[in-house]
Design a protein around this nucleic acid. Structure first.
Lengths: 319, 319
DNA sequence: ACAATTAATGAAAACGTTTTCATAAAGTCA
DNA sequence: TGACTTTATGAAAACGTTTTCATTAATTGT
């Protein structure tokens, strides 16, 4: 049934026939129980929240590669909650998955580090683990932040705000670093008043932060939102304030969501290849399963800017 | 370890201690292999595409309920492809999941019907199965279509177009039925020219259909898009045509996506409770697993209209 | 105090595979 | 032909649990 090479062709045919006749389907559970490590046909995938489209892109990428290899995927939502992360890691181990793909909640995660050291195949996607060498797929977040802000600077903006994350996720930290780098490179002071850190999981928080920004004595002429939900919150607040984009304020979003080009005005964004990141993660995972000894690699993908119509030259009287 | 009731308390304590000491974690695989039906701690979930936010809402609802019961979820994307659907159903059976939740691709699906009859716990969500009595969670799609169109009629619109699905998914058929019902109830002729059926999986197709609509000799004054992706396509086409919403044309979308209230103008939509549908589906599933004999039920949830600013009174000179 | 019931315990079977091992059959070589 | 290798085959062990069964210990009733 399994190793076709070392068996008599006619015997094989006889077996195949019997299988069809009986409608026999091997139990993947029993196979997994008996199988040696690396043949469980099951992958674990832990993400913060499937309702965040960025992560559903990653999930789809993983799933498509898994499908091609006859693997199934167990999906887990961590809600950025380390306890849930740990719980699911336990469950997945208990399920004997061949490996786990996840954006680790913390850059220094004892739990995840422990698994890596224990030889459990782990692939980090979207976020890095600092202390442990592990297969990783990320984008160049700092560059993403840089090109977003640089684009605004070229349009003449000087008061550029950023909506970033209050939690220490590597991706947001780096995007913010890129923001500061771009400002400094153009000799613009980094004004702490324009740096707002909030919860990247909901647009609601970003909406409030944007309101605060707009209420400043000297409000920003442009806003850089560092993920899709924060972008939504910013847009909402700007709408409510009755401001027109890009006439009154420019906006750069992070991640090119399906709605970005459909809205008025179409949104300028930093594009990150979520689906492709998922695919690459899964591919790294299968490579590791096939060869547990190989050196961990880090794949860094390049973000790019898509200039649409939400960014315009800064108003002259504002200078 | 398992049945705490019938064991000597101090023996139990002794066992617990040993478990902690050894860091023992039971293998869910072995448990599943041995367990009787209904205790596998694993659920299957097949959806057309996780990148469609409506489905990620459902997934999240399912996952949250499953998490509460210590269940894990295997996620599968069918791409509306019956072969993939069948493939995954086989895989899930082979994985001994306790049951499968899915929107069946076809209303008459031999495969799914077969499983229902074979006693495999199945819950249909979003779409129905016609020939077989099975636990189902849907919304009142016809009513959804009706209130969308009725709202437009009340604003004076007479030429109302609909973007619907060319494939026979029960949900789209019913929404379209609601559209026609509303028109007829107000004595408005159903103009076949205003009914455009396309692929609900991508916005691209809807964009083209909308372009066609706008190019009509007597173009519609309002468009009802029957799912979130088609809404996006419609918005895009309207943008490209340089038309202003709601001044030149009104739009009602289906499903209240996170971006709906952030865009300009905020979008009037028919809201469907995707997350809640997922939750209810999972609850039905657990009920069925606990009591395989109980009569199948159908839960019909109510859609509602959220009137924002993408719908306005029809232009006077247009009358 | 003895039989009868109940509770606790430990061993063995079962779940459905893959892997290993032993044996039998067939083929090769001097 | 006899010894040796290769190929085929069937039986048994193993994976890690839960369930069943038999045995022993403790409790109850007369």
């Amino acid at each position: 049934m399994n190793d076709a090479s070392k068996v008599n062709p006619e015997t094989r045919e006889r077996v195949q026939k019997a299988m069809r006749k009986l409608g026999y389907q091997p139990s993947r559970v029993a196979q997994r129980l008996r199988a040696t490590k690396g043949r469980s046909k099951l992958l674990g995938l832990i993400i913060p929240d499937i309702q965040n489209q960025f992560y559903s892109n990653i999930v789809r990428g993983v799933e498509d590669v898994a499908y091609g290899k006859d693997y199934a995927v167990i999906l887990c939502n961590s809600d950025e909650n380390p306890n849930k992360e740990r719980f699911y890691l336990d469950v997945l181990q208990s399920e004997s998955v061949d490996g786990v793909i996840l954006p680790p909640i913390h850059q220094y995660s004892k739990v995840v580090e422990g698994l890596v050291e224990a030889g459990v195949p782990i692939v980090c996607v979207d976020r890095k683990l600092v202390r442990e060498a592990v297969d990783t797929v990320v984008i160049n977040n700092q560059k993403g932040g840089f090109i977003a802000v640089d684009h605004l600077i070229e349009l003449g903006h000087k008061r550029i705000a950023i909506l970033s994350s209050s939690s220490q996720f590597s991706s947001f930290e780096e995007r913010q670093k890129g923001y500061e780098e771009a400002l400094k490179a153009s000799g613009i002071n980094v004004d702490p008043d324009l740096i707002r850190e909030g919860d990247p999981r909901s647009s609601e928080n970003a909406r409030e932060l944007t309101k605060e920004l707009l209420a400043l004595e000297s409000p920003p002429t442009a806003i850089f939102a560092t993920n899709n939900l924060m972008t939504l919150g910013a847009l909402e607040a700007i709408n409510e304030a009755g401001l027109k984009i890009p006439r009154d304020i420019s906006v750069v979003g992070f991640d090119d969501m399906p709605w970005a080009k459909a809205i008025t005005p179409p949104l300028t964004v930093i594009k990150q290849p979520g689906y492709e990141m998922g695919r690459r993660s899964a591919e790294l995972m299968f490579q590791r399963v096939a060869d547990p000894g190989r050196e961990p690699v880090q794949i860094t993908m390049e973000p790019s800017i898509i200039v649409r119509q939400s960014t315009g030259k800064v108003k002259i009287n504002k200078k």
